[in-house]
C-alpha cells in the first residue's frame, strides 16, 4: 500500500513575478493519516496543495507520490492517485448536470461509459447525493455542492484525498455533516483549513506553515497548546480549547473521528 504515501523533499516554489511562496518544505504523509495544513493567509497552503498533484511544479526539490517522483511521465498516474477537492465548488463543477460532472474524471481516464456511470453512482451514494444526479450544479446548496465536489473526486478512486478549505462557506449543520463524511474515509487525507476546530476534531497531525516555511509539524493537540507558536504564525487555539465565555470551563474533545 505504499502508493498511499506523499512526500515533499525540500520543495521551494517561486512564482513568475518573483515572489517566493514555499521555502524548503519537507513533509512526509504516510498511509491512512489525516493531516491538516494550517497557516495565516498567504502562508503558502494553497500553493503547497497544488504541488501535490502537479498543478504547479516545484522550482526546486522533489515531490513523491507513492514510490515515484512526480514528473511529466508520472503525471497522469499521480493525478489518478491524488484526488483534489478545491475550495470553491463552483470552480470544480463545470458540467451541465451533477452526474455528468462526477463521470467527467472516469471518462477522462478512459473507462467505458457503463463503468464510468457505475463508479459515479457509487461515489454519489457515498456522499449521499445520488438523488441530485440530474440537477444542474447552480441549483445545489452550498453543502450539496461540497459533497458533489467530493464525489467528482471519489469517482476516480484516488488513494489520497487533498481538500482545500472543506468547511468554508457551510452552515453549521452542513459543516458537521461534511466533517462526519470526511472522518469516515479510509484514504490518506490532507486538509488545508482555517477551521481549527475541524482540524482538532479530524486530524491527529498538523503542519503549520508560516511565510512559506514549515513552522511546526506534530500532533495537533501539542501544536494547539503552543501559545507562542500560534501567536507567531497568526493563529489561535481552536474554540473548543478556549474557555467557555459563560462558565469558564474548557471542553476537552475526544481524539479524532468524532463522527
Amino acid at each position: 500500500m505504499s502508493h498511499h504515501l506523499v512526500e515533499l523533499r525540500s520543495v521551494s516554489h517561486v512564482y513568475p513575478d518573483g515572489s517566493v511562496a514555499l521555502r524548503d518544505v519537507s513533509i512526509r504523509v504516510t498511509h491512512g493519516e489525516c493531516v491538516a495544513i494550517i497557516g495565516a493567509n498567504g502562508a503558502g497552503k494553497s500553493t503547497l496543495l497544488l504541488h501535490l498533484n502537479g498543478c504547479l511544479a516545484a522550482s526546486s526539490g522533489e515531490v513523491r507520490v507513492g514510490d515515484f517522483p512526480l514528473t511529466r511521465k508520472t503525471l497522469t498516474q499521480v493525478r489518478r492517485t491524488v484526488g483534489m477537492v478545491f475550495q470553491n465548488p463552483d470552480d470544480q463543477l463545470f458540467m451541465p448536470t451533477v452526474l455528468d460532472d462526477v463521470a467527467f474524471g472516469p471518462l477522462n481516464l478512459g473507462l467505458p461509459q457503463a463503468d464510468a456511470e457505475q463508479r459515479s453512482r457509487a461515489a454519489l451514494e457515498r456522499v449521499g447525493a445520488w438523488h441530485l444526479r440530474d440537477k444542474p450544479p447552480y441549483l445545489l446548496s452550498g453543502g450539496e455542492k461540497k459533497r458533489v465536489a467530493i464525489a467528482t473526486v471519489l469517482s476516480m478512486a484516488p488513494d489520497i484525498l487533498v481538500m482545500d478549505e472543506p468547511t468554508s462557506g457551510l452552515d453549521p449543520v452542513a459543516r458537521r455533516q461534511l466533517m462526519a463524511l470526511v472522518s469516515e474515509f479510509q484514504h490518506t487525507r490532507i486538509l488545508a483549513s482555517h477551521d481549527l476546530d475541524m482540524v482538532l476534531a479530524l486530524c491527529e497531525r498538523t503542519v503549520v506553515l508560516h511565510e512559506g516555511r514549515v513552522a511546526a509539524d506534530g500532533a495537533s493537540r501539542d501544536i494547539f497548546r503552543d501559545d507562542a507558536l500560534l501567536a507567531r504564525c497568526r493563529l489561535e487555539k481552536p474554540l473548543a480549547m478556549q474557555g467557555c465565555p459563560v462558565c469558564g470551563v474548557v471542553r476537552l474533545l475526544p481524539r479524532s473521528g468524532a463522527a
Binding site: 498543478c55 493525478r79 484526488g83 483534489m84 478545491f86 470552480d91 470544480q92 473526486v153 476516480m156
Partner: peptide
C-alpha cells in the same frame, strides 16, 4: 482555477 480543477481530474 477551473482549468486546474479539470487537469486534476485527468482532463
Amino acid at each position: 482555477r477551473i482549468h486546474l480543477a479539470m487537469l486534476a481530474r485527468a482532463y
